[in-house]
């Protein structure tokens, strides 16, 4: 508090904005910083893949099939003579593509339906939420597998499968948030002022979004894990596209003679998913009002 020249007591505006507070809280925790560092590393690998990969990930060196690690091929070559490290590097792009677009589809559909269900309530809510309950009764990988098997493999169909598989959680969370938020005074003020449903829903969405940010962060890793699972089952990304899951699928037949073919992409998946989970946990703690001031 401070007193101005006219003698009025004025409250000082908060020196640290909410975003800065979030960044500060997250950066105070070493494990979260490491997580952010790992994600940043993989993002850089994905962006600069053509510069980092020494070989074309699709080019088959017929004279060097199943070569062990060497100076030319640091992780060796696969069963058709492709450079494993280059495929691993380019696989980062596929993983991020699946993560970002899978979550975008799931988030857009789920949050949109959740917003409508939560705002309108009544029978609109009942119909939407019972359908979501029905989708939640099917394990995500089973649902994604069924959709992917019917639509066929390939990046686009995998994205649709992942989007639908992860959508119910977004819908449920958004609906719960909106149901609570719509009782707030500022929404009643908007309604009294004659604001359109569209405008009110926009305000509700903005206020309901922060907790969903945690889900989005952790789901980026989950989408990568799901794509890897589908590709491992042979109904995900189609060959010869360098996907980490498909690399494990191809390499498992040579597990005993050439374990690096499956173990290297699996390690990469685990690392990136772990990083997203750690950052998601950090974000959850930073946004948790109960922990405010303790972190």
């Amino acid at each position: 508090m401070s007193m101005d020249s006219s003698g009025m007591i004025r409250a000082k505006s908060p020196r640290i904005s909410e975003l800065r507070r979030l960044i500060k809280v997250m950066c105070n925790r070493v494990v979260v910083v490491v997580g952010i560092g790992i994600i940043a590393f993989f993002i850089l690998v994905a962006i600069f893949a053509p510069m980092l990969a020494a070989h074309d990930p699709l080019y088959t060196y017929l004279e060097s099939i199943l070569n062990p690690p060497s100076g030319i091929h640091p992780l060796g070559t696969d069963q058709v003579g492709r450079d494993v490290l280059s495929r691993l590097i380019y696989g980062t792009r596929i993983s991020f593509l699946v993560g970002i677009f899978g979550v975008t589809i799931a988030g857009t559909l789920g949050m949109g339906l959740g917003l409508v269900a939560g705002y309108f309530g009544g029978w609109v809510n009942a119909i939407i939420m019972r359908c979501i309950d029905a989708l939640l009764a099917i394990p995500p990988i089973v649902l994604m597998m069924a959709i992917s098997a019917i639509l066929g493999g390939g990046l686009f169909n995998v994205l649709i499968a992942i989007g639908f598989g992860m959508m119910p959680t977004y819908c449920r969370l958004m609906c719960a948030q909106v149901t609570v938020l719509k009782e707030n005074d500022y929404i009643l003020v908007l309604q009294t002022a004659g604001a359109s449903s569209w405008r009110i829903m926009r305000h509700l969405f903005i206020n309901a979004f922060p907790p969903l940010l945690v889900l989005i962060t952790t789901n980026l890793g989950t989408a990568i894990l799901m794509e890897a699972g589908l590709s491992f089952l042979g109904i995900g990304i189609l060959p010869p596209t360098p996907s980490w899951g498909a690399m494990i699928y191809d390499g498992r037949r040579l597990l005993f003679s050439n374990p690096i073919l499956s173990l290297a992409p699996g390690g990469a998946i685990m690392l990136i998913v772990l990083a997203f989970n750690i950052v998601g946990d950090g974000l959850r703690d930073a946004l948790d009002p109960k922990l405010r001031g303790t972190l």
Partner: peptide, 22 residues
Amino acid sequence: ANAGVAVPIFWLGLLGIYVFGF
């Protein structure tokens, strides 16, 4: 526990087969 949530279980299975089986 964090790693357990992140690990692809099919990959863990292959790792187990390689280490404990093979």
